[in-house]
């Protein structure tokens, strides 16, 4: 009985997280298309459902019924594996992301996260680093020049930006003296980290955009020069898995920005439940990412590398140094 009582909440939480994450891209694609449209003074999808709300469903049905094509010269096993490999890390990351303080349900305390790790932040950075494997495998297995070029760019980009990203959060870790995300949030009770760590936030935000391969750093899937980059050869359901992974990475980065620099779920106004407040903040960041996407052009490859190594890396190191001196 004891056993069931500890296992059951875990299973329920897992089911909720996985279910929500799987369904999340549906509203996100709608949102992205609407934002794109309104920036260009168009109404966006309007025909399927009220203001096109059912459009993502129609698109999903279309994607799932499309032919699942594997190129003749492709490495079939790797080709089939790549979308799953790309999808697993973003899902894994959400095991370590807290959504609020522990709540009381039926007299037992339930924490609003799957696993309260002491090194949650490290885990997230490490696991999201694995995400690049899906891209590498996809590009390699497709046996197509565009896909390989896309995945090569992706590797170089991910490795370059992982470093400033990792350094930029060190200031936050120093302030909270912990790598536990709940404690990092608790340490921002009075004052958001973005106020004390503006440079850290800037570096993290920009490096995050590059990690998520969003515009202006979307070189791995630059439509203009690479077809679609590493997933050029994918179609149907496999392609939709890549899209799913991409949207999840965006949500993950939004969540990390909120947790590390914008006070997490603390200090919600108007008696909003903490979790709702947290989700609203995430939504805001997702919206900002999309707004960026339809505003900026893409950086050139050498510019991308220059920004990563010559600007963000020194900035993040300087940030660590200054925060260290100030904390002494």
């Amino acid at each position: 009985m004891e056993y069931v009582l500890t296992l059951l909440p875990m299973l329920v939480k897992m089911a909720i997280v996985v279910g929500v994450l799987l369904l999340l891209p549906l509203p996100l694609t709608w949102m992205e298309r609407k934002i794109a449209a309104h920036i260009q003074q168009r109404p966006g999808p309007m025909r399927v459902g009220w203001h096109g709300l059912l459009q993502p469903l129609a698109d999903a049905v279309k994607l799932l019924t499309k032919e699942d094509h594997i190129p003749a010269e492709a490495d079939r096993r790797l080709f089939a594996m790549a979308p799953v490999v790309a999808l697993v890390p973003p899902f894994l990351v959400f095991t370590a992301i807290p959504f609020g303080d522990p709540v009381q349900v039926f007299g037992t305390e339930v924490s609003l996260m799957l696993s309260d790790m002491n090194v949650g932040l490290l885990f997230i950075l490490a696991v999201s680093g694995i995400g690049v494997f899906g891209t590498i495998l996809a590009g390699w297995a497709s046996n197509s020049k565009y896909a390989v070029l896309g995945s090569l760019r992706s590797i170089a980009q991910m490795i370059s930006y992982e470093i400033p990203m990792g350094f930029s959060v060190i200031g936050v870790v120093m302030l909270a003296s912990s790598m536990n995300l709940s404690q990092i949030v608790a340490a921002q009770e009075g004052l958001w980290n973005v106020v004390v760590q503006p440079v850290g936030f800037f570096v993290f935000f920009v490096a995050g955009l590059a990690e998520a391969q969003r515009i202006p750093f979307d070189l791995p899937e630059a439509e203009g020069d690479l077809g679609a980059g590493y997933h050029t050869e994918y179609s149907g359901i496999r392609f939709s898995l890549f899209m799913l992974a991409e949207y999840l990475v965006v949500v993950m980065l939004a969540a990390l920005n909120v947790l590390l620099f914008f006070g997490g779920w603390k200090g919600s106004p108007f008696f909003l439940p903490d979790t709702v407040w947290f989700l609203l903040k995430i939504g805001f960041f997702v919206w900002v990412f999309m707004w960026f996407r339809f505003t900026f052009p893409r950086y050139r490859y050498d510019q991308l590398m220059a920004i990563g190594w010559k600007v963000l890396l020194p900035l993040s190191l300087l940030n660590i140094l200054v925060s260290g001196i100030l904390m002494l």
Binding site: I35, A37, H38, I39, Q40, Q41, R42, P43, W291, F292, F294, T295, F296
Partner: peptide
């Protein structure tokens, strides 16, 4: 400035 411009467009009337 670019962001401000697209923000203004985002909340202006559509012309379609």
């Amino acid at each position: 400035a670019g962001l401000r411009l697209t923000l203004r467009y985002m909340f202006s009337k559509t012309v379609t």
